[in-house]
Amino acid sequence: MSDIVLKTENLTKHYGGVHALQEANFELRKGEHVAIMGDNGAGKSTFVRQITGVEQRTDGKIWFDGKEVNFAGPIEAREAGIETVFQNLALADDLDVPSNLFLGREKVLFNLGPFSILDRKAMRKATEAALVRTAVKIPNLSSTIRHMSGGQRQCVAIARTATFASKLIIMDEPTAALGVQETAQVENIIRTLKENGEPLILVSHNMRQVFDLVDRIVVFRRGRIVANLRKQDTDGNDIVAYITGAKTGQAELQAA
């Protein structure tokens, strides 16, 4: 149990009559990178939103870092050590890179309540360090996000997760909207995280990427986890079969 970072038991989310997530049992161990795959609408983002406290689950239990948790909101989850790159990024276009990285948790020079003086130098330094750690290259830190390409914005969102000591990083389709080179850059960041032993949940549609990067693949279909396979025990065709429902996988899950 001690090396389990995250565990869910019968995690369930219904939106009225829509059973978006059904009895999901999931485990993630220290240093492990796990991919979540599945068709559009399979419940992947729903799963992420329940873990990160963005929504309140219908049923089930979540353990994180050895304790059972009930996050009231995304901020609590973040304070507990879960950093998330959401599908919609959640960046402020008119702020520069350091301001986005430290949004809501600014470093402060003098504490004067809401009028606290910002420690801009320290935030800039920490930003540079985070960019080095994640191997993200952004030419001008004081430029606003608005003027950046999709890939650069994605990298800023990812660098944000690396700025703070986190125990788990979740990325929901981080490369879905990116070109080839930008995707490669994001994948580099994920490799760097792996080398640093930081556990990761990666939601992705990209088969090549998943087989390149992660240790284990979990497949969602119609709100249920239908496969949980180590990379070396499976291949692309196998995964596609689970995603499309050609293979149901209940037997394998029971045996595992």
Binding site: P139, G151, E182
Partner: peptide
């Protein structure tokens, strides 16, 4: 010059 040197 940034990621892939794109549009910046």
């Amino acid at each position: 010059h940034g990621i892939g040197g794109l549009s910046y």
